[in-house]
Structures are given as structure tokens and as C-alpha cells.
């Protein structure tokens, strides 16, 4: 496994002296958390969610409100927001997991819309469409650590990502992970084998929502300002795109896909007004022709091209 090595190597990034690169990777790492959350629920357990931006946003607003309005410690705010989102998602799961397939997709989509509207309308609490400025940056006064700069916050994001990756890997590699994948294929088989399917789905949803909320809390304290817009439905869809590119059931694949989706739009900016079109086409191609994800797909393509070069007649498409 080269992934752990790659993740450790990331630690040198802040020393490269490029705030831009550091910042880009912070955003990638913060987005990787909800992406991993969606992958656990959708990739491994087969339950579609088009509402994860809401959990991410609730984490961000919860943590921000706690320190801005309540004057509380940001760390406690993040923890509290994560916990509350977890509790809330458990109840949400009780309601929405009566539904399957398209109905579940629509229900989660609706949830995402409702939460976003709440961000806009609960002005006293969220600042409405103008957003909530002045969210304090993170510190650990006892250890005399502060995370005000990109270079220092990078390590906060890194630790959060590593924790999420390790826990997600633990979960999917544990025996329970087998049952999760079983639910994706046949709920009735899993149920006949003595598993309470709804309860298990709810637990996965709680984990998935909590990891997203924690990331949202970190995001709020990193940027220092939040508005409803980054937590709109677009972000939920972006997460689904990420796990599709990542191959649904591969944590390293999803890390790569998060990086890819965040970075790919940069070189595409050269194309001016057509960047969106090219990006869209690109996504269609990946999803249609690389069901295993971009990483595996590109690898397979490379191998095919290599073998094709050796035996030109044998090359398929």
C-alpha cells in the first residue's frame, strides 16, 4: 500500500513555502472528510444521499454559532456540533430509511434544501444570506499552539483526514464492513442473517454525517466566515461526483478523486468560458467508461495501451 506513505509525505507540503498549494490541499483534505462519509453510506452501504452538504453546513454553522454567539471554545463548538449532527442524523435515518432508491435520493435532496433554506432564513443565528463573519481561528493555548496560518492549520486538517481515513478503513475492513456491502446488494439476505438492516443503516448515516459535520466545523474556523452558499445542494452533488470518480468503494480512490475534482478546474480555467463544458464531458466519460473510478480506470487504460503497443492487433477499442 502506497497510500499511507503518500499521506505521510503530505506533511512536508507546508515547508514548500507555497501558501497556494498548502491552502489547496487544506481544502482537499477538508472536502475528503464528507467524501469519505458519503462513500461509507453510498459506496459501501448502497444508500444514496444527495444531502450531505447539509451535514457539512450544520457542522460549520453549529461550531461557528457556538463561538461567535456563545463565545465558547472553538474546539468544544466543533465537538458539540459534530455530536448534535450525529444525534439528529440518527432521527433523520429513522424517517428516511423507510425509503429506497429514487425515493431516498429525493428525500435526502429535500433535507439538503430545507437545511439550506434554514441557513438563509434564521438570520439572527446564521446572519442570513450575508453570512456569519468573525469566526475565531483555532488555538490550543495549553500547548501554546495556534492554527491561524495555512501552514499551521494544514496539520489540523491533516490529522482530521488521517483520523477519518483510519476509522473508515477500520470500519470497512471489519466484519461489519462485509455486512455493509451486503446491504448494498441484498437487504433481505442481510436481514435473514440476523442483522437489523435499518438500525445498521442509521449507524452508518450517523458516522457519515458526523465526519461531515466535523469537517464543516474545521472549515468554519479555517476560513473565518461562512455563508449558506458553500453548503448548498451543489456541494452534495460534488460529493457524489467525487465518490463516482473515486470508484465508490475505495478510500484511497476517494482521496485521489477529491484532489482531482478540486484541482482539475484550475488548468481548465485556461479554456475560459468553455471550462464548464469540458469538465462536464470529462465527468461523463469517467462515469460511463470507468465504473471502478478514475484511478483504477486510468490504470487499466494504461495497461491496455501498453499491451496494445506490444500487440497492436489485439487492442480492443
Amino acid at each position: 500500500m502506497k497510500t499511507p506513505l503518500a499521506l505521510v509525505c503530505l506533511l512536508i507540503v507546508p515547508f514548500l513555502g507555497s501558501d497556494y498549494l498548502t491552502n489547496l490541499l487544506i481544502v482537499v483534505m477538508l472536502h475528503a472528510l464528507p467524501a469519505i462519509g458519503v462513500s461509507l453510506l453510498m459506496g459501501y452501504t448502497g444508500q444514496i444521499s444527495l444531502g450531505h452538504a447539509a451535514f457539512y453546513g450544520l457542522g460549520a454553522y453549529g461550531a461557528a454559532a457556538f463561538s461567535v454567539h456563545g463565545g465558547g471554545d472553538p474546539w468544544i463548538g466543533i465537538a458539540l456540533a459534530t455530536f448534535l449532527v450525529g444525534v439528529m442524523s440518527s432521527y433523520l435515518g429513522w424517517v428516511i430509511f423507510r425509503l429506497r432508491g429514487h425515493y431516498l435520493a429525493v428525500a435526502t435532496l429535500g433535507f439538503g434544501f430545507i437545511v439550506n433554506i434554514a441557513f438563509v432564513e434564521l438570520r439572527d443565528w446564521t446572519g442570513g444570506p450575508n453570512g456569519l463573519p468573525g469566526i475565531p481561528p483555532l488555538d490550543i493555548p495549553i500547548l501554546d499552539l495556534s492554527f491561524h496560518t495555512d501552514g499551521t492549520f494544514f496539520y489540523v486538517a491533516w490529522v482530521a483526514m488521517i483520523l477519518a481515513v483510519v476509522m473508515a478503513q477500520n470500519l470497512v475492513n471489519a466484519p461489519v464492513g462485509l455486512v455493509m456491502r451486503g446491504i448494498a446488494e441484498s437487504e433481505r439476505a442481510v436481514s435473514s442473517l440476523g442483522n437489523d438492516v435499518t438500525s445498521l443503516k442509521r449507524k452508518i448515516l450517523v458516522i457519515s454525517a458526523a465526519v461531515s459535520a466535523a469537517s464543516g466545523g474545521l472549515y468554519a474556523h479555517y476560513i473565518g466566515y461562512i455563508s449558506p452558499q458553500p453548503f448548498a445542494i451543489d456541494f452534495s452533488i460534488k460529493l457524489v461526483v467525487i465518490i463516482a470518480i473515486g470508484g465508490f468503494r475505495s478510500i484511497p480512490g476517494i482521496l485521489f478523486a477529491t484532489l482531482f475534482v478540486t484541482v482539475i478546474t484550475e488548468p481548465l480555467q485556461e479554456l475560459g468560458y468553455y471550462d464548464v463544458v469540458v469538465y462536464g464531458l470529462f465527468l461523463v466519460v469517467i462515469i460511463a467508461y470507468m465504473p471502478q473510478g478514475l484511478l483504477q480506470g486510468a490504470y487499466g487504460l494504461g495497461r491496455r495501451m501498453l499491451s496494445g503497443a506490444r500487440a497492436p492487433a489485439g487492442a480492443g477499442r
Binding site: 507555497s18 501558501d19 497556494y20 472549515y219 466566515y225 458553500p230
Partner: peptide, 21 residues
């Protein structure tokens, strides 16, 4: 110009790119 895609997170990335690169 850096297209911020009407997105705040992108704006943060963009401004760092413009300043630094």
C-alpha cells in the same frame, strides 16, 4: 482572472493562487 465559480471556498483558493503564483 480566476473564476471563483460563485463559490467561497474557490475564492479562497483563487486569491491565494493570484497572490502567490
Amino acid at each position: 482572472n480566476f473564476n471563483t465559480e460563485s463559490d467561497e471556498t474557490k475564492a479562497v483558493i483563487g486569491v491565494k493562487k493570484l497572490i502567490e503564483r
